[in-house]
Amino acid sequence: MALPLPPGLTPMEVAFFCEMEMITVVPRQRLESLELLGGPTPVLKPPQRANLPLWLALLLKRQRRANILPPPWLLPTSLERILRYETETSPNAFSPPPPHPYAVTARQAPTDTISPPFLPSSTDDAPPDCLPYHWLELGEILLEACSDDITDPGHVRTLLRDLREVRMAKMRASTKDFDAEGGGVNSLVGVGAMEVAEGRQFILGVMDGLRKLGASKEAARREQEAGGEGGDLSEDDEMEM
């Protein structure tokens, strides 16, 4: 193995991707539009709010040229609501991700496949009751960089830790329902990037172990199906892909 890192992303890499998320700032100084690779930034005119990539917002914050507006879901009240949803309303499933801003319909549209960080999910108009894809890392970074802009940072930090614990426990418990036919983590909808990065190694290990143990059963099942009907098998294969 050439690269000593395990497959998947390290927490640092995930946090790096998270810095592409758009976030709302309140500038304290004028700044002309910057020509970035991803397009020009809006002209900053205090006290007009503007959406900037997180890395730029952090830079301006560090230079005291702007204040960061925490996204609505990072308020203690929203986090408490989400935590209550996770523990009481649906103790087995993850809380749903924010709705897709462009309605996905039966007719295919180019906006169907856009995903974070290209969808703004942490600006000040984001839905307050859903955890976006980069919730954990964004919350941690904001708590670190601009705890003075967040209401009640100590409480928010505790709530983020609680949410993480609850959701990781769900993720671990879901391995109990794995089977060789691909059951198990029946739905990863709503799971954040950092949680995927953290759980990947373990879940891959469990699935691999079960696949090895169930290999003989699987082979027998395939033989049986091949004997029965050819068409079924190919369809099944496609499903498992």
Partner: peptide, 25 residues
């Protein structure tokens, strides 16, 4: 897993998988 390749033991297969799942958690 190697023994299951050689013997057709459905029950052992089930027990092993269940064991692995429970212990993994």
């Amino acid at each position: 897993a190697r023994i299951l390749e050689l013997f057709d033991e459905k029950e052992i297969c089930e027990v092993l998988m269940q064991t692995f799942r429970t212990r993994a958690a």
